[in-house]
């Protein structure tokens, strides 16, 4: 058949292209929403951040950040809160995830509700609950004084302590869910084999189980860290104006000075830090796995 023109080639190609586009056209409405709400406003902020007082291109908004001590303090606070919260979540989340992963799936599903219920409850409600629990005349103080843990009620809220407690509580599910997922995938036979080869349970855990659970833990920790970087509500309420993170400062700039350039520049820095951390995270896990608890 050499030399003969391929049959129906052009028509098939046309049809192929038409079908591909008609399927892809289904994502267009969703893309329009994202472009309108995310891309255009973000680009606008990006543009504003490079606008000087005279309306021309300028780096002064970024330059300011390196100049003023207040900015430095805000960055330090943000990282401090984010890192401490992440560490607290690892300390509390690892044993909990390990416990859940050791249970038969049916029981794990029931106990998992303890993780999912807070996860699903408005963070405003939970922040409020901590505000009530931690106040001077609150339950925690009264309980502590009663059992003699400390003598007079101490200030647990409207400061760093309260912020950290509230944020650790709110972030804990974000660490437990991916970590639990990773632990469930660890082959029980491996631990069995390690035990049969004479490893003590502790030894088997550290040499076999822990390294295998590490990617899940790192993924969860990075998620928590990223969410902390951009956190607003909890530090605003539980920090009582004493814990100012990047998000809080962005709002303050807009409320007090109405300086869109400065606020945008700070936002761009936050976005870059977030994206970079997530880029690191993406090397460890699939992004949608984070949400598995909600699927």
């Amino acid at each position: 058949m050499a030399g003969a023109a391929p049959l129906h080639e052009a028509a098939l190609q046309r049809q192929h292209r038409r079908e591909q586009w008609s399927i892809l056209s289904l994502v267009v409405p969703a893309m329009i929403v994202i472009i309108l709400i995310i891309l255009i406003p973000l680009s606008w902020l990006f543009y504003l951040s490079f606008l000087g007082d005279d309306g021309g291109f300028s780096l002064e908004n970024y330059h300011k950040m390196t100049q003023y001590k207040s900015y430095y303090r805000i960055f330090v606070t943000t990282f401090q809160v984010s890192i401490l919260t992440t560490l607290a979540c690892i300390a509390l989340g690892y044993p909990l995830a390990f416990f859940l992963a050791q249970l038969p799936p049916k029981w794990a599903g029931i106990f998992m509700l303890a993780v999912l219920l807070p996860f699903w409850t408005s963070l405003l409600v939970r922040t409020y609950a901590w505000l009530v629990l931690l106040q001077k005349r609150g339950i925690l103080n009264e309980f502590a004084v009663q059992i003699g843990l400390w003598e007079t009620p101490i200030k647990l809220v409207h400061n760093m302590t309260g912020t950290l407690i509230g944020m650790a509580h709110i972030m804990l599910p974000f660490l437990v869910l991916p970590l639990y997922n990773a632990m469930r995938k660890i082959d029980g036979d491996l631990m069995h084999a390690a035990a049969n080869l004479g490893a003590s349970p502790v030894h088997a855990f550290w040499r076999v189980y822990f390294p295998l659970s590490l990617p899940g833990m790192v993924a969860g920790a990075l998620i928590v860290f990223v969410l902390c970087l951009g956190f607003y509500v909890t530090p605003a309420v539980l920090g009582g104006g004493r814990v100012i993170m990047v998000s809080n400062h962005i709002t303050a700039i807009l409320e007090n000075q109405f300086d869109w350039g400065a606020a945008s520049a700070l936002g761009v820095v936050l976005l870059v830090a977030t994206t970079f951390t997530l880029y690191l995270a993406a090397r460890f896990f699939r992004f949608d796995a984070v949400l598995f608890g909600r699927d």
Binding site: I40, P41, W44, S247, G267, L270
Partner: peptide, 24 residues
């Protein structure tokens, strides 16, 4: 690439979406 675009609202800190839409 489209999937990545569609999940950006999970990646971008909400405060940025808030002030961005507020401005726009």
């Amino acid at each position: 690439a489209i999937f990545l675009l569609l999940i950006t609202p999970m990646i971008v800190p909400v405060i940025l979406i808030a002030i961005g839409t507020f401005y726009a």
